[in-house]
């Protein structure tokens, strides 16, 4: 029986010093099963896809889609034929262009799919690691963390912090401890990097919105900047997303934003909405800019939560406060500058 003690002479058996992998452990499936059936807090809850989708809507979608595609094919066919009529060379060139557009489109779609698979995989890693640290298992996390490190290494140079982690962690640490050490020594640095990226994008978009004269331009600006930010953050956490993959990511971020606890929202809203005195001092365009900046930084923080292999806990959750301050300061300093130039102008009169 393996439960009874045995003593070996150290020469007589084969040993490995590595951590165990297939030694008997708490069953992983069981853990995940438990997680499903026992939600501890609302954080773990998620809306299921609605089973009864609207049949009419579906029908409409499919028929409308087919109509558009048919029309598009028909039109291109006509278009190319016309071109052929004018000149053969022109016809061939445009036809080739069309084909290359279609191929490239499919290519992007597929690679986006692959990359967003990576995002799904990241999510499974998140779940695995959090179940390890809640259940104090031993010998399982190291492998997963190594895998994550490899993914990071493709995008960011973390060799230094990784070396620090390897030096600190040893074979006596259990999974929960390993994960904490990894969190503190490797991920913390990446978090700083991600927060820096958020700050940069959020402040820049705040400024742009504050300065741009057109509402439609604002929307385009926000879409562009936030998309760039998602790309940067996903790269920092070693799961880069392409344009199409980013759509999936954006969807997740949006769902998370909506599902974010009401309490969190209320707490943040109270501080985020600018003090009245400040709001009165600046133009509505600037207030919009600040609003957009805050929205983008919220998006960014949500993205971090999705991409990060280890979930944030209450202590190390990034706070909006710092970023908000830097956005507001930037805008306000701009206001002051404007005021000064205005005043100067008046003086000159």
């Amino acid at each position: 029986m393996s439960d009874q003690p045995i003593k070996f002479d150290s020469q007589s058996v084969k040993v490995e010093t590595s951590q165990l992998d297939d030694a008997e452990q708490v069953k992983e499936d069981l853990l995940q099963e438990q997680q499903k059936s026992l939600p501890i807090s609302a954080n773990g809850l998620k809306l299921k896809k609605s089973a009864k989708s609207n049949r009419w809507l579906k029908w409409f979608g499919i028929s409308f889609g087919s109509l558009v595609v048919t029309a598009a094919i028909f039109e291109s066919w006509q278009f190319i034929q016309e071109l052929f009529a004018i000149s053969r060379v022109l016809g061939i060139t445009v036809a080739a262009l069309l084909v290359s557009v279609v191929i490239a489109g499919f290519g992007t779609l597929i690679s986006g799919r692959i990359k967003s698979k990576r995002l799904e995989y990241r999510k499974s890693i998140q779940q695995k690691l959090s179940s390890y640290s809640n259940n104090e298992t031993y010998g399982k996390a190291a492998k997963v963390l190594d895998e994550v490190s490899d993914e990071f290494l493709q995008e960011v140079d973390i060799s230094k912090t990784l070396a620090l982690y390897r030096q600190t962690a040893n074979s006596s640490h259990n999974d929960s401890e390993l994960i904490q050490i990894y969190n503190n020594q490797v991920l913390n640095g990446l978090d700083q990097l991600a927060l820096e990226a958020i700050r940069k994008h959020a402040t820049e978009s705040a400024l742009m919105v504050a300065l741009s004269p057109l509402a439609i331009a604002d929307m385009a600006l926000v879409a562009w900047r936030s998309s760039r930010m998602l790309q940067d953050i996903s790269r920092i956490y070693g799961c880069p997303q392409t344009a199409f993959g980013r759509l999936g990511l954006t969807k997740q971020v949006a769902t998370n934003l909506m599902l974010a606890g009401a309490s969190e929202f209320v707490a943040e809203a109270g501080v985020e909405l600018l003090g009245k005195s400040v709001a009165a001092a600046i133009s509505s365009k600037m207030a919009q800019g600040i609003g957009v900046g805050i929205l983008i930084s919220r998006l960014g923080i949500q993205t971090m939560q999705i991409c990060r292999p280890i979930e944030f806990d209450e202590d190390n959750k990034p706070k909006l406060g710092q970023i908000r301050k830097s956005i507001t300061n930037k805008i306000l300093s701009m206001v002051k500058k404007n005021d000064k130039t205005l005043n100067k102008g008046k003086d000159n009169d």
Binding site: S2, I6, F8, S10, V13, V15, S18, A23, G139
Partner: peptide
């Protein structure tokens, strides 16, 4: 990890106090 009956058994390796011999227990 020591191999025992074709399974891996998590053990500790050290010098036994009694006889100063390295053992895996």
């Amino acid at each position: 990890l020591a191999e025992h009956e074709s399974k891996k058994l998590a053990c500790v390796k050290g010098i036994e106090f009694e006889n100063n011999k390295e053992v895996i227990n």
